[in-house]
Design a protein around this nucleic acid. Structure first.
Lengths: 355, 355
DNA sequence: CTGTTAGCGCATTCAC
DNA sequence: GTGAATGCGCTAACAG
């Protein structure tokens, strides 16, 4: 724990003034090449660590941060992301951040378009995006880049963009995890079913496609004897879904494990419970209120969780770092660890995710 | 994101000076009852948030932190705790902390006694303890309390002490998780075995007892038909262990799931792999190098992990808060979420835990 | 291009 | 008991 070196000392060691060091640290220009070299050498040698907090004190400026994600339903995925964002703002409450949320309907491309179009006019210093629709996101990102406004992605990546950072999950790995779990949870001769959402055409549904690939990849490389069936359920019409699900189960009596590769595991679980179908292991995604209920009553065996709160927390943290300090390398991609949640470890996770 | 209120404003609002507010915030005395009342009212009304970083700048003092845990073997439990400690010190590198590690041998009470006896003489400002031996820890804690030195526990609690905070896992819940997993992983008519360590008499072994209770509780409340066998393995003599394990498996051919309720799952996994015994599901604890190897080669089905890095991180964070600000409520106990790690989510966790 | 300086929130010393 | 003054690391405006 050697004492951290300060700007004053850097200045003395490199024979320039504090002002010059500051200009170099913040790429603010008006520095001779020789000064820059000298200071950068000392910086590297001494392992200078920038103090973001004293910097923020001095810099009286307040930053405007816009966060645009699908609507945050209480206790669901985007709400948990929001909790993480709140915790980060709390942790950095010495830095004044005016934070605006702009929510859109993830099933309605026009709602997204409206939301995204309003963003540049609000003069943000930075933007955090939970992307759903590809083309709308591309348009927004290009406008932000032109304006030199840094942005970060949460949950999904959009190719052809240049964010400061992306926090998301490895969806293929998530699918493989579900594969392994169902493989372990069901007898060898049982069949496995994949239930995915009928709606398509958005990025989160794309997440679910990548999960499907991962799940298939798992069984291809481990156990060729497994039969994998596939079916779709409608998100919008629960009664219709129930009928579909029961029909499917009647037609496929050897199915003992079901992968619901979105957060709607509870719909399948409730449908089966309704008709008293037992002995089916369901694995789904996200700690939503309904999934929590089903884990508790034993109708869902496990849920995969992608640390939404950690994603939100770190996105804000990185953005604050970018705003106050030299943006280091751009377009860094971080994968969250993928948590497996069952009834017995549910409570501890819930506390972390939703407090 | 309302702007945070500052000491200067608190002072103005309560009709005293900044110095007086500071004396009240830090319980430093020499304040009239009327001033205290006035300030405390304003403090509560305005939701004043203490800025630990600017405080640290002003306070030129450097703190001496002593951390005493069992020896940190590279890549194992206490080393990961240490990583978390390192990350916290990094995050708070604006606060100068001189940090001394004092390791002891967790199987040798004399080594622990020597380590703990040396601590008060080093004049620490705070101590973080990874406790193993109860009586030695009690002695140390009493001496620290007499000297008014705050301390925190990681991993285990010792009753009759008064730490600032404790970060640990709910060991009973961990046992229940193992129960659920083995229940799911094995056919209904299979038997389950518990392997625990032969050595006893220390707190971490006590952890393993609480896990055993949890595991039994799970089966008692879920599936009375299961037969649970129990066996011990020697940590110190691997060849002896292998023999014991094979003997046990030969005598109990119906055992299809094994719970190793300490970090030695790899010993059982290796023994079975040596004799080409297949189709046994092993669940164990902690992401150690050897367990990671066995998860990768498929001989361990799952490992339970108690966020050692998070424990270390938060212990330091809380201690720093105590050193710089009013110690809030004492003796708070935090449980970590319990992660379930299988081959498919291993890499993502490894990155977080060991980077 | 560069150095100097005032001031940010906070803790502490020293008069009063 | 209390307040004013000084200095901490840092930024930015300003004077050279």
């Amino acid at each position: 724990m050697a004492r951290q070196i300060k700007i004053k000392e850097i200045a003395e060691m490199s024979g320039v003034s504090r002002g010059t060091v500051d200009r170099i640290l913040h790429n603010r220009g008006n520095v001779s090449e020789s000064s820059r070299k000298a200071v950068e050498n000392v910086l590297a040698e001494t392992g200078y660590k920038f103090n973001i907090h004293t910097s923020a004190v001095s810099l009286k400026k307040s930053f405007r941060l816009i966060i645009s994600t699908p609507v945050a339903v209480a206790g669901e995925y985007w709400d948990t992301v929001r909790n993480g964002i709140g915790h980060a703002l709390e942790e950095y409450s010495d830095i004044t951040i005016d934070c605006d949320y702009i929510f859109y309907n993830q099933f309605d491309i026009y709602s997204c378009r409206n939301a995204f179009e309003s963003i540049p006019g609000k003069n943000p210093d930075a933007v955090i995006i939970g992307a759903t629709f590809v083309s709308e996101t591309l348009v927004l990102c290009h406008r932000l880049e032109e304006a030199g406004i840094p942005y970060a992605f949460i949950d999904s990546v959009i190719e052809g963009t240049n964010p400061v950072v992306t926090y998301s999950s490895d969806q293929n790995a998530c699918g493989q995890i579900v594969g392994r779990l169902l493989d372990l949870f069901t007898p060898e001769d049982a069949e496995i079913a994949i239930f995915s959402s009928r709606r398509i055409g958005n990025e989160r549904a794309n997440n679910s496609m990548m999960r499907t690939e991962g799940l298939r990849a798992y069984f291809n490389s481990h156990n060729t004897a497994r039969t994998i069936k596939e079916s779709k359920i409608s998100v919008l019409d629960p009664e219709e879904s129930k009928k579909d699900i029961m029909e499917f189960m009647n037609e496929n009596p050897k199915v003992k494990g079901i992968a619901v590769l979105n957060s709607r595991g509870y719909i399948v679980a409730d449908a089966l419970a309704d008709r008293s179908v037992k002995g089916i292991q369901i694995v789904s995604f996200d700690l939503t209120v309904n999934n929590i209920r089903c884990i508790k009553n034993g109708t869902i065996a496990a849920v995969i969780c992608q640390r939404p709160e950690m994603q939100g927390f770190h996105a804000v943290k990185t953005i604050i770092g970018t705003l106050l300090y030299n943006p280091a390398e751009k377009n860094v991609r971080h994968f969250m660890p993928t948590d497996i949640i069952i009834r017995e470890n549910l409570d501890q996770y819930k506390e972390i995710y939703t407090d």
